[in-house]
Design a binder for these strands. Structure first.
Lengths: 347, 347
DNA sequence: CATACAGTCGTAAACGTTTACGGAGTGCGT
DNA sequence: ACGCACTCCGTAAACGTTTACGACTGTATG
């Protein structure tokens, strides 16, 4: 209970030997090691992390920073937990633990990060919700703290990140809708400074222009990515004088609110308005009509994130050679009923 | 960068004084303190947590253990993040940090907890998803680690917990439905060993019997608490020879799947079948028909949890006197359209 | 003038580990 | 007998803090 010293005393061995035995060092008799391990097991001894960290300058802990902003809380889904499983499956192999660091909503994420890093609670970080310019990235780069970002950013020139393929999704969605005869296609984007919104809209615009459809800013609806935001989005769509025939949602669960608002006005999703969603979720399939949705494999994403992070850490680099430093994570379209109709056949 | 020693050197002061200055100890000249604080700010010095923890035997970190079981991931909503905000608002006052400890799905929660506690990563714990008998509770009690459980348990006799008022909800829901004329009322429960399921069903049964309605086990549907589970639940309901006229859901988002499956068979929720949900979420309001739902104030719940936890910790006890050791957390009914009809008028 | 006391600061020990170093013992070849 | 290599283990320093203790002023008190 009192530490390695007690353990050593009980065994009549020096603490040095006990430590070596527990840590699998070679210069210890196998018989002694057996005894040490047995005693440790019996007494429930586990090394005090503070002492260990202090000595070796590392904590064996990886931090996953998440923001509990209002928006994140509102649209919170299984996203982080899903990614977490994948991450842990990688970290477990190296006896690394994953801790989630929730940044309080009233604290600046950058300050929070600095605090956590300075306190040496973690060896490395995974940050998410990257902003267009994100000081955290500059800070981590300069401080030489290993990290991976979930999301691109304009900050710093060359840092490891994985990002969802927003461009591919917007592109694919637009192409699909145009093929189905749509010409007037709306799209939703977050109202925040999150980088993903910009990428999403840019790609949407390029896809349209490729088909000689002029970009109409009034078709870009900036709302929160939640049920409530979906409701609001539908509301704004209905106010447009020339109503679009399709809408691309940046977050799947917005469909719930969207459906609701549409039905209130007698507009039927999947017949009067095509809807395509985005981000994870077999859950989209349970909507009525079921949502056409681009799906993410969260577990695999977590694995990729974990590997990329370890590849940047000297101690583990050798285990993950030749990995890429940046990945655009592909999404897979799961066709549903929400956009399964053709429009404008009369030309 | 190198620690308190550098800081002291630069200021030509001993490290002891620097430490005292930074920690607000009284026996240091105000002028010196000013200089120290300024230098610390400039150099971005923050005390190394390992050194500090080692010395004082505490980490200033509270752990919130969450399980990333398949079920939790599936029905993950804003629950933990919502609670987190409330917790942090309390902890911030004492300069405590909250870390989330996600137990890997392939590790025994009890072992995981033991590991984390033994490593001294946290000073205190908040555990959730308590099982009917939960070894974690015995362990924490015996090891004298301060903790609060989110959820009752049969383990140990007297430990601090807050639990949602499942009994009140089941009771209230049954009463309401009976008033509306229902006699055949189904209910869903999780298939796991989680304690909440038992409480939920027990209370449901008692409420029924109070009205001389016999308890029919076939009306208890054990499915996962997710959209998919809702779909499955509806499926099973439809298979019953004598179909119930109402159903009580243990988790709100199940309604999505439930609605879906019902509509597939031409049964209209809110007209042919009354539905009442449970747990948080204004989101229930965006369903169609909107879900009658018992709502939780997650933030307030977090605050209560935080206070109860600190009240058990000697260092903070004095700030939170006279608090209760157990709380049954009330829920508020938000009436919707999903059960707004009367049945069996013909008697 | 001796003493007490408050205010300020430096010294050094302690927290629980890990690990470089060296020593004791053994076996083996010369 | 001697040297050498090898195995195993003990010793002690180091990691970065906090804090009990005492030292040193200056001032008030007897």
């Amino acid at each position: 209970m009192k530490g390695i010293r007690q353990l050593a005393e009980q065994l009549n061995i020096s603490i040095g030997t006990v430590s070596r035995a527990l840590n699998g060092k070679p210069d210890v008799n196998e018989e002694t090691r057996r005894r040490v391990l047995a005693a440790a097991e019996e007494l429930g001894y586990v090394a005090n992390q503070s002492g260990r960290s202090l000595r070796q300058g590392e904590t064996k802990v990886i931090g996953l920073m998440i923001e509990s902003s209002k928006e994140t809380v509102e649209n919170a889904d299984n996203f982080f937990l899903g990614v977490t499983s994948g991450l842990q499956s990688v970290f477990a192999r190296h006896k690394l633990d994953l801790l989630m660091l929730p940044c309080p909503s009233d604290e600046d994420p950058h300050e929070y990060l600095k605090r956590m890093v300075a306190r040496r609670i973690v060896d490395a970080m995974i940050i998410s919700d990257t902003q267009r310019v994100d000081r955290r990235i500059d800070f981590l780069s300069r401080a030489k703290i290993p990290f991976v970002a979930l999301g691109r950013s304009l900050s710093a020139s060359n840092f490891p990140w994985i990002d969802l393929d927003f461009e591919g999704v917007a592109d694919h969605a637009v192409e699909r809708l145009i093929t189905l005869g749509h010409r007037r296609i709306a799209i939703t984007a977050p109202s925040s400074e999150a980088n993903l919104g910009y990428l999403f809209i840019d790609s949407y615009r390029r896809a349209l222009e490729r088909h000689d459809i002029p970009f109409d800013p009034s078709l870009v609806i900036r709302v929160r990515s939640s049920e409530q935001g979906g409701y609001q989005a539908a509301h704004e769509l209905l106010l447009l004088e020339e109503r679009p025939t399709a809408v691309i949602l940046i977050y799947e669960l917005m469909a719930i609110g969207l459906y609701r608002r549409l039905t209130e006005s007698g507009v039927m999703p999947g017949r009067d308005l095509a809807v395509i969603g985005f981000r994870d979720a077999p859950r989209a399939r349970f909507l009525q009509p079921s949502l056409s949705c681009f799906r993410i494999s969260l577990y695999d994403l977590g694995v990729a994130l974990g590997r990329m992070l370890l590849a940047t850490m000297p101690a583990y680099r050798d285990f993950y050679p030749g990995g890429e430093r940046n990945i655009i994570w592909p999404l897979e379209l799961m066709p549903g009923e929400s956009d399964a109709f053709r429009v404008g056949v009369m030309g």
